[in-house]
Design a protein around this nucleic acid. Structure first.
Lengths: 186, 186
DNA sequence: TTTGGCATGTAATCCGTTACATGATTAG
DNA sequence: CTAATCATGTAACGGATTACATGCCAAA
């Protein structure tokens, strides 16, 4: 029951980039796919243990640096399972949107509240849009020649187009709500 | 620990539209906010029981129709808590995106797989875009005069702009991946 | 009579965050 | 010396979906 676990596949995917510790996994996930995928230690370490038990990753305990480090690598079996998963169609599921939920029932409160929510959301989106655009420039410069570049580009372009649309939506909604507010104040 | 529960507020919000059974709640949620918010019975019934225990909703057992129906209404206390929640800024959190995850590691598989995923996603978005636009027309005709109309409109407009952006993204990605495929076949 | 809709709920399982707990190394 | 970073884990808690379980009523 429940949804199929996807954290293990995110881990296997990251391990195709090279062997890593759990700690490094968390960092690299944050740096690369962090805009649309996050993992916490509470997920990572137990998931790694299960993957190792299933033979999808192998563990090398690294003691040469004096400090204990558990370095994980993807195995042949792990790579095969990852590929099979990558080829399966992703199932769409409805993302809960708390901002929209608060807006939908906003007639219960003064218009100033939803207006503030949308303004905050807009500011946040503008800021993230800048980050995404900067990241896009760096990525093209540094990794533009890699075969995987098109796929990396796709995820950034998703963020860019999505955030642009979000900002436009905020502007349209704010215009309407301001109009509504002056209308009702009169 | 864990995130604040939001299902109870979705329920309270729906109950501002009138008293309802758990079954009706599920239906009306599906019909109205279903594009960005879903609730299953596994959430609804326990949540309703807790809301009643806390005095945020009141229960009237309806036996006049011979069949047992538990009709819930929002109480004054419930409405006050709903309003307080509606005024608080929604916390943004990163939505996991399985399509992007599969694309990000798509270099592990043949390009045909990610192309198929994006094509499916595009078809799905186009279909939902049609639905949203039809819904928008009906909404304006039927509820255009309500004070809450602007808020209902906002949620539909969100879907419309978001889906348009998504379709555009699919087209851009497909163009790139097709180019990549012919390049690599040569 | 059988299918579909109305209606209520529980159980299993996994998702996911936050807090707790511990300790070594490194840079300022 | 001390703060930040590296590093590994567990515990607690609640969120959320899916499947299971049950049964009535109405319409075809």
């Amino acid at each position: 029951m429940a949804r199929e676990a996807r954290s293990p596949f995110a881990i296997l995917g990251m391990l195709t980039l090279g062997p890593m510790t759990g700690y490094e996994l968390r960092q690299r996930i944050e740096q690369t796919i962090g805009h649309f995928w996050q993992e916490s230690f509470g997920q990572l370490y137990p998931a790694l243990a299960r993957l190792e038990a299933g033979g999808l990753v192998s563990l090398r305990e690294d003691t040469q640096g004096e400090r204990a480090r558990n370095v994980y690598s993807i195995t042949k079996k792990g790579r095969a399972e990852l590929r099979a998963w990558l080829e399966k169609s992703p199932l769409r599921h409805v993302e809960r949107n708390e901002l929209l939920l608060k807006l939908f029932f906003a007639n219960e409160v003064e218009p100033l509240a939803p207006i503030a929510h949308v303004e905050e959301s807009r500011a946040d989106a503008v800021q993230r849009l800048n980050t995404v655009r900067e990241l896009g420039a760096t990525l093209e410069r540094d990794l533009g020649a890699l075969p995987a570049f098109d796929y990396y580009w796709a995820s950034l372009r998703y963020g860019e187009l999505g955030l642009e649309a979000h900002v436009r939506w905020c502007d349209e909604v704010l215009a309407r709500l301001e109009k509504k507010r002056t209308r009702e104040d009169a």
